[in-house]
Design a protein around this nucleic acid. Structure first.
Lengths: 346, 346
DNA sequence: TTGGGGACCGAAAACGTTTTCAGGAACGTA
DNA sequence: TACGTTCCTGAAAACGTTTTCGGTCCCCAA
């Protein structure tokens, strides 16, 4: 277990091959070797060929540190997230990584764990590494303090910056809420209730606002007479549903503020022998696959398009690096995922 | 939305401050400035003070690219994961990031998405960036092809390398399986069944092996007469439980191969009005918090200590970078999480 | 007064690239 | 033959550090 051992082929400490080696093997100067490999036009086709072959033969790989030093572009960006643990950072991060990966930029991942001093520490490190830009991914969709003026462009994702001069990308919770309710209405539901999470989250209030808005347009009242704010948990979903059924047994659809809550809702509806979606339709929020797709029945839900948000953040960052800095808040539209927990009332 | 706008204070294009500026302000040479800031002894206390003050005043931050160029250490490592999406990579990644973050090393995150050519592409990029080492995080706990001889040390995490000369860190599935069954036995259970996932996963077979082993020690037979291999899904948990109850109604404990499966098991037990844990105890695997902690009742489970695995990977990589390269396979012990789905039979 | 030695400092080389610019070769034209 | 072009190549500077090594200054003992 972990036995120290010299690497297998204990070669004479093979210096990493440099451009000089390539040039030498190709019989040209370092300058032309560089130009040949970078596709500069002012080099004869035959010499370029020679150089390329030499580079391949030595399996040369240019030292990006050196390149970055002179071009003043490191080809790296920082991804500063406040909680890796949370399920929201990950898709954003995937989208961003994907968008960058197809370019030549590499991504530094930093997790501040919601700690401010850790964030500043990582920030220092990233700037010291001369990243070309950075994306700040928040933990919850409420505004966060701006990092202020930095020598590189910054994009805020998920949590918007509190400074309107920064560029922030956020999900559309109002739109999502109204989209969920719209879906239920289209399926003929009239007695629609809303159970959601912690009211201190802007996301909870926004989704509720969107839902109420859509109901009002239709001239409908909220079943259960109130928005059931509580916690982002399955247990709250169960508890609220019991109370709701007691207060208003005529409910025929429940919009849950998260898939977790929706799971709790489903659980109690089963206990009460209320058929889903025959008797009561249920729609969740987040499209957290493990919860939504495996529910019984599989859960219709609103997808916030987080991966797209991540990709867009990457694109906006590129633009900013190229000088097109933007500002303000851009909103990503959500997407309805229909599964079997919602169906037309017949 | 995204209106291009020059940055607020349109300062005269503020060149990033370099060591030369610090030296100049402090009235010393670049050399002494460097030595002063790096805590080299051969510099008078008063001059060091001057330099430090100048550096602060200009908020100097050393260019790590330049440093890396000459010290031949970039202070970066690559984290090459095959699927970010999967829930197993994340905790490992968190552990590693944490361990590195407390050091001065930054982490390049690369997601190969299970694609081989993407993996090679990222590998090239990382080597070009002169990372000091890298950690390869697999998607499933079966062996994966070695990356072969690289100019930097490599640690394989979760998925071991198929080359025994590499150093791999893996979870202990056999131990986990036996730990789960042991827990059930200690609670007086005698009719223990095992429902698990896809038999092509080494993890499934290993956990089953550990479970059977422990049963054999106790002279017990498996309830249901077989290991119920199937899929890593809630649906399979439900289906298998129904079959199991039909075949052997005397079962008093179920060891599920994953928390997802366990959720399905719980669901059917509730439908059948079999009290958990009064009548049947249930234990899961993975300690996937969202599923386990929110189950009804909260689910006892086996935690694979993935975060610790990530941290250990970071430590081993450090050691390797410092010349202490290891080889072979190191196993991380699992941990029992007891919640309310298991209890003594009375 | 001289010499030795310690403490401190700075000039310069080095890391591996890119880019500028001067110049050589080859060629066509007057 | 002389000259202007065009095409290609290479010397050298630059990027921002670290590190080596020789040098200066000062102090103290002989």
């Amino acid at each position: 277990m972990g036995v120290p051992s010299g690497s297998d082929g204990d070669q004479p400490p093979t210096r990493t091959v440099t451009l000089r080696d390539v040039a030498q093997l190709a019989g040209v100067s370092i300058a032309t070797a560089s130009k040949a490999l970078n596709g500069q036009p002012q080099v004869r086709a035959t010499t370029r060929e020679k150089v390329v072959r030499a580079a391949e033969q030595l399996s040369f790989s240019p030292n990006t540190l050196a390149q970055g030093l002179i071009t003043q572009r490191s080809g790296t960006v920082g991804l500063l997230t406040s909680d890796l643990e949370g399920r929201f950072s990950i898709p954003i991060l995937m989208g961003a990584e994907d968008a960058f990966g197809s370019d030549q930029t590499s991504v530094f991942l930093c997790d501040a764990r919601g700690d401010n001093v850790r964030e500043r520490h990582h920030l220092r490190a990233l700037l010291s590494r001369r990243v070309d830009g950075l994306i700040v991914v928040g933990a919850r969709p409420d505004a966060r303090p701006s990092l202020g003026d930095l020598p590189v462009p910054v994009i805020y994702a998920y949590s918007p910056s509190d400074d309107p001069n920064d560029l922030s990308l956020v999900t559309d919770n109002v739109g999502g809420g109204s989209m969920a309710v719209d879906h239920l209405i289209r399926h003929g539901r009239r007695r629609i209730a809303h159970i959601t999470g912690d009211a201190t989250y802007g996301a909870a209030r926004d989704r509720a606002a969107g839902a109420l808005d859509r109901l009002r347009q239709e001239g409908l009242a909220l079943a259960g007479d109130q928005v059931w704010y509580g916690a982002w948990s399955e247990a709250w979903g169960r508890g609220a549903t019991r109370m709701l059924l007691q207060r208003d047994p005529t409910v025929d659809a429940i919009f849950a503020g998260s898939d977790e809550i929706a799971r709790g809702v489903l659980d109690v509806l089963h206990q009460e022998d209320l058929d889903v979606p025959g008797r009561v339709a249920v729609i969740g929020f987040d499209n957290w696959n493990i919860l939504a797709a495996n529910a019984r029945p599989p859960l219709s839900t609103i997808d916030m398009n987080l991966e797209q948000l991540g990709r867009l953040a990457a694109q906006r960052l590129f633009a900013a690096i190229d000088g097109n800095v933007g500002s303000g808040t851009e909103t990503i539209p959500p997407r309805l995922i229909t599964r079997e927990s919602t169906a037309p009332l017949d």
